[in-house]
């Protein structure tokens, strides 16, 4: 069984006209950076991988994760994590409850609280569990969003320009953190960006999508 995320001959079209075509595999712990001008369909590709493609698109090609074909699996059964440029923390839940939402089912209440506290420690947010996410700074929110995703134990991580809302100093810091956490968990990562610095920091292969 091959570890990693493979895209076999993926072609996405809209109204019969092909939009993008890609065939790549990303090994565990590696980062594939997808670049290209706006509107070329970078986010559409990620939507196809998460299983949330809008109905006005048609797609062909297989997605294989750790040896399992997940092309037809429902979104919640794919074990593909994703981070967007907005933190998208659930506004009605506290920081701790957001993390608990992500945390896999199982364990006693105490064990779960321990895991959440540990995850907060890991990103320097100890004691933030009871906070309202709306009161956090941009960098803090980004870190909570990352840990929430990682607690759900995904087998791959997709990044949809996740750093573009952060200012320059914070950006480098959060970027480093995300890549380090993903590497520590040996996750295959696909990064979508139009920022050359992001691409360079990712350090992996870079593909540039061009309009077909």
């Amino acid at each position: 069984m091959d570890k990693g995320l493979e895209l076999h001959d993926v072609v996405i079209s809209k109204g019969g006209a092909p939009l993008l075509a890609i065939s790549k595999s990303v090994a565990s712990g590696e980062v594939l950076t997808v670049m290209g001008p706006s509107g070329v369909g970078k986010s559409t590709l990620l939507a196809y991988i998460t299983g949330t493609l809008a109905p006005d698109f048609e797609a062909a090609g297989r997605i294989v994760l750790d040896g399992h074909d997940i092309t037809d699996a429902p979104p919640h059964a794919r074990r593909v994590g994703i981070l967007f440029q907005d933190d998208l923390l659930f506004p009605h839940l506290s920081v701790g409850a957001n993390l608990a939402f992500g945390l896999r089912v199982g364990g006693t209440k105490f064990e779960r609280q321990q895991k959440i506290a540990k995850a907060l420690d890991e990103v320097g947010l100890s004691g933030f569990a009871d906070r309202d996410p709306a009161t956090l700074s941009g960098g803090q929110k980004a870190r909570v969003a990352l840990m929430r995703m990682l607690l759900s134990e995904p087998c791959a991580l997709l990044l949809d320009e996740p750093f573009s809302r952060l200012d320059a100093a914070l950006r480098a810091q959060v970027r480093e953190l995300v890549f380090a956490r993903a590497k520590a968990r040996a996750l295959p990562v696909i990064l979508v960006t139009h920022d050359a610095e992001d691409a360079a920091a990712a350090g992996g292969e870079i593909v540039t999508l061009v309009p077909i």
Binding site: A47, T50, G51, T52, P74, P75, H76, A77, R78, R79, V80, G81, I82, F84, D86, L88, F90, P91, H92, F101, G102, R104, R148, M149, S152, P154
Partner: peptide
């Protein structure tokens, strides 16, 4: 409602029913 909330919740392995009951409906209270 921001459908990316639904994508995130599904990526967190929440079933469609769980997304509806514990994310969407509370947010739309």
């Amino acid at each position: 409602w921001d459908a990316r909330m639904g994508t995130i919740a599904a990526a967190l392995r929440a079933s469609p029913d769980r997304v509806l009951w514990s994310v969407r409906l509370p947010m739309l209270l």
